[in-house]
Simulated assay, not measured.
Amino acid sequence: MRINADFSRRASLAPEDHGWVKSPQNGVERVMLDRIGEERARATSLVRYAPNSYFPHHLHPGGEEILVLSGTFSADDTHYPAGWYVRNPPASGHRPYSDEGAVIFVKLRQVSPGETQHVAIDTHDGANWQRQHNRDVCPLFSDDVEQVSLQRIEAGELLLDTPVPNGAELLVLAGELIEDSQVYQRWSWLRLPVGECGHISAGAAGATVYLKTGHLSQVIGDKPDDT
């Protein structure tokens, strides 16, 4: 299966176009944003857990990155309410579930092989935010390959003012972004290829976005993974 698998091209999906499809596990549905592979794949998805749904314990040889968008997502004996960012290194494993239901943004098999640390950050904690270049930023992860953060963009402000050498990917978490006549509302996803910037600015109420840069010069990992 290949969905938005040409990383040299722009890709996007608006909330009204979200096509929720059943996963192999009862009560768990997905919107596939990009994907290379079948059930075990390099994948970026929105995943929706119905109350009391779960996946059996499984490993993630290529690592896993999660942002909890609503509800409470749990893994083993740890619970992550909306706003938590979780990053699990390669070779880690867990039993994910949700008692109350949850929607999460998930990236599978996109973690560098050398990563060893588990990351868990509460983005609703003001202590995790800092002022950078006249905007509020919550740093989530950074290494020689990629930079991941949440960013609060004021009304009319450009998201990116220069082309990103190694690509960018974003998910709108609040407010809206505008590019010409296109409006990206909450839970819109957009991937910009290497060297593209786009004239993307925040709408009248501003915007909060998940922003990942530097990771699209190559597709990290080409082996299957569990979801």
Rank of each mutant, 00 (worst) to 15 (best):
G93A: 15
R191W: 08
T227N: 09
I66R: 04
A82M: 12
I153A: 05
N4M: 10
R131E: 13
P24K: 02
E146G: 12
V111Q: 08
S92G: 05
S98D: 03
A91T: 14
D144I: 09
P90T: 01
R10M: 09
R42E: 02
V209P: 03
E176Y: 13
T72K: 09
R131S: 12
L177P: 03
D225R: 05
R152L: 06
R35D: 05
D226N: 15
R87Q: 10
L108G: 11
Q182E: 13
T72D: 10
Q218E: 14
R48N: 04
V183M: 14
I36K: 04
I200P: 02
L190P: 03
D76I: 01
P139Q: 08
Q117F: 14
R191V: 02
Q218F: 12
R35P: 01
T116D: 15
P81T: 06
R186G: 09
S74K: 02
L33H: 03
E29T: 04
D125F: 11
W189R: 01
C138K: 08
G221K: 06
D180W: 10
G221P: 06
Y49M: 00
G19T: 13
R10N: 11
Q25C: 08
E154L: 06
A82T: 04
G195E: 07
L158C: 14
E29W: 09
I200K: 01
R131H: 14
V86W: 03
R10E: 06
E169K: 09
R10I: 01
W129K: 07
V148E: 11
L160M: 12
D17C: 07
P56K: 06
D99F: 03
T208R: 15
T44L: 10
E196Q: 13
Q132K: 05
P90A: 04
T44D: 08
P163C: 08
G27D: 00
A127E: 14
E64N: 08
L33R: 00
V31Q: 00
G167S: 01
L67Q: 00
P24F: 06
V183R: 15
V194Q: 14
G63P: 01
L140D: 04
A75C: 15
V148I: 12
I104G: 00
E169W: 06
T123F: 09
K223A: 15
N26Y: 07
W20N: 01
V47Q: 08
E16C: 05
S201C: 11
I3Q: 04
A82V: 06
L171C: 09
S149K: 13
A204D: 10
Q185W: 12
A205N: 15
D34A: 06
L190E: 03
P193W: 07
